[in-house]
């Protein structure tokens, strides 16, 4: 007997069997449920994040928090030293840059290094941890920068758009630099690289702030162009980092 004939015989025999579609579906779902019960239980993403935050090393968060507090105290204290408007804007530019580099260096300390490879094999992997921290720290940083912008606008009478460009542009430039360091495939030297870039960029912002007319309304278009370019580069740098993490070399330390 040929295969096709056997198949026909089976098909004919099956026609005699009445299949109750509702019971079939119920059995299917019961089977899926039973299989799921046998698997290791899982938490929701919200709980994963909460548990992770609860057990993770919070030293670097503390450093980040202390730095923010010190920055606020420093800026508040500066207004009693007779600093002029340009001086205050320059200090805020430097502060925005340091804030950005610090928050990205926290990622390096927490998720990169030797834990990165192990973390990447977990359900909530290193890439997701980094993305979560980038979003969280980005939100905190932007909130702080808005507060600074509001303060400069209210106390020093600088236009909101103007001050936004003055502090967001250095923030983005510093972020691009820090993300570049994070994307490098050499680990272990990053702390000093973050520190050196923070110093170098702070000096650069100081120099820019001291250029006559650099912070005038007439030069605002240059700031707008710089902001747009750095915004674009920032997005590209994030994509580059995530793509490098996807490939994996950046996560493996040896």
């Amino acid at each position: 007997m040929r295969d096709s004939e056997i198949k026909t015989l089976f098909a004919k025999a099956d026609e005699q069997v009445h299949v109750d579609e509702i019971r079939k579906q119920k059995t299917y779902y019961a089977m899926i449920e039973e299989m799921e019960k046998q698997r290791t239980p899982m938490m929701s993403t919200k709980n994963i994040l909460l548990h992770q935050f609860w057990y993770m090393d919070k030293l670097f968060f503390a450093v980040y928090g202390v730095l923010i507090c010190l920055g606020i105290i420093f800026i508040t204290a500066l207004q009693y030293t007779g600093l002029n408007q340009n001086g205050m804007i320059t200090v805020c530019m430097v502060g925005a840059g340091i804030l950005s580099i610090t928050s990205i260096s926290v990622i390096d300390k927490l998720f990169f290094g030797k834990m990165a490879e192990l973390g990447e094999s977990c359900y909530f992997n290193t890439k997701q941890c980094v993305a979560a921290w980038l979003v969280l720290s980005g939100m905190i940083n932007v909130m702080i920068l808005f507060l600074i912008a509001g303060y400069l606008n209210y106390h020093w009478r600088v236009g909101l758009l103007q001050v936004g460009l003055y502090i967001l542009t250095p923030y983005l430039v510093s972020s691009i630099t820090a993300l570049g360091i994070l994307s490098m495939e050499t680990r272990g030297k990053n702390s000093s690289l973050f520190g050196m870039s923070a110093i170098f960029l702070s000096i650069s912002y100081g120099v820019i702030g001291s250029i006559p007319r650099a912070l005038f309304v007439t030069t605002l278009w240059i700031w707008a162009v710089a902001f747009l370019v750095s915004g674009l580069l920032f997005v590209m740098q994030i994509k580059k980092l995530l793509s490098k993490m996807e490939k994996g070399e950046v996560l493996c330390t040896n």
Partner: peptide, 28 residues
């Protein structure tokens, strides 16, 4: 997975390290 050169946070206790890993593995 156990990597060859597996990293850890030195200041973590053994129990805390496993709890942290359990969180990454989404275990209730």
């Amino acid at each position: 997975y156990l990597p060859q050169d597996f990293g850890y946070y030195g200041d973590f206790t053994a129990e805390r390290f496993l709890r942290y890993m359990a969180a990454l593995k989404a275990l209730p």
